[in-house]
Simulated scan of single mutants.
Amino acid sequence: MLDQLILFVASLAANFFSALSGGGAGLIQFPMLIFLGLPFGVALATHKVASVALGLGATLRHLKESHLERRFAAVILAAGLPGVVLGAVTILQIPERAATLALGLLTLGLGVYSVFKPRLGLAHEPRNREGVALVGGAAGLFVVGFLNGSITSGTGLFLTIWLIRYFGLDYTRAVAYTLILCGLIWNGTGALVLGVIGTVAWDWMPALLAGSLLGGYLGSHLAIRKGNLWIKRAFETVTILIGLKLILG
């Protein structure tokens, strides 16, 4: 019972901040699973399955606002899902420390970049939706999808910043796309692949799913109420903390 309570509280906190900032649930949830005794591969598959509930909780809240454009959402899915599958298939072949260090440096860079771009993501200015520019954006989505399928901590943050920087979304819309498409569909695909080729700790799932679902809903609710500037600050805080944690180990 104590382990289940720890799982629930940690999952609730991790997914609350993830829904608020547009990614980063793995900062708490994935290391916690390893700390409580799961091997790396089992913890990875278990975290991926649990993270689908974050997407479901966030979807329940964000769909009330109806910010998503169906055509653009289809582009994100079509470009990113092949990368997710490829990343999930190859992750167990990549040296863990090298991948973690690289991800930490990139994530820290995202936060610092946002800090020094004070207007980034505060206005909705759609761009790069046609022709060659759209192809370039799709290539970036494929790379982000690969990271999402392979690495666990904070990869939703990469999708959030790509949607803002390249496609001109504001933070509120970018986080909505990330949590619904990445959190629910990308993570669901990665969870399916890892569930087939790996092992999931199903007896840990009830507490993890409950924490993820509730945290995703509550974090999304607060993000919608507070608006772009508040989400931007949360994004910067989470990315810098995740980056430092991954680098320092």
Score class of each variant (00 low, 15 high):
Ile28Met: 14
Ile28Tyr: 07
Gln29Ile: 12
Gln29Asp: 11
Pro31Trp: 05
Met32Ala: 09
Met32Arg: 00
Leu33Asn: 03
Leu33Val: 09
Ile34Pro: 05
Ile34Glu: 12
Ile34Trp: 00
Phe35Val: 15
Phe35Pro: 01
Phe35Glu: 15
Leu36Ile: 10
Gly37Arg: 01
Gly37Cys: 04
Gly37Thr: 13
Phe40Ile: 15
Phe40Thr: 12
Gly41Lys: 15
Val42Phe: 09
Val42Thr: 15
Ala43Ile: 10
Ala43Gln: 10
Leu44Glu: 10
Ala45Asn: 10
Ala45Trp: 04
His47Pro: 00
His47Met: 10
Val49Ser: 07
Ala50Tyr: 09
Val52Thr: 12
Ala53Tyr: 04
Ala53Pro: 01
Ala53His: 07
Leu54Val: 12
Leu54Asn: 00
Leu54Trp: 01
Leu56Cys: 07
Leu56Thr: 13
Ala58Ser: 15
Ala58Val: 13
Thr59Met: 12
Leu60Glu: 02
Lys64His: 05
Glu65His: 13
His67Leu: 15
His67Ser: 14
Leu68Glu: 07
Glu69Tyr: 07
Arg71His: 14
Phe72Tyr: 09
Phe72Lys: 14
Ala73Tyr: 06
Ala73Arg: 02
Ala73Pro: 02
Ala74Met: 14
Val75Pro: 00
Ile76Asn: 01
Ile76Ser: 02
Leu77Glu: 08
Ala78Trp: 03
Ala78Cys: 08
Ala79Asp: 11
Ala79Phe: 08
Gly80Cys: 10
Gly80Asp: 01
Gly80Met: 06
Gly80Glu: 05
Leu81Ser: 06
Leu81Lys: 02
Leu81Ala: 07
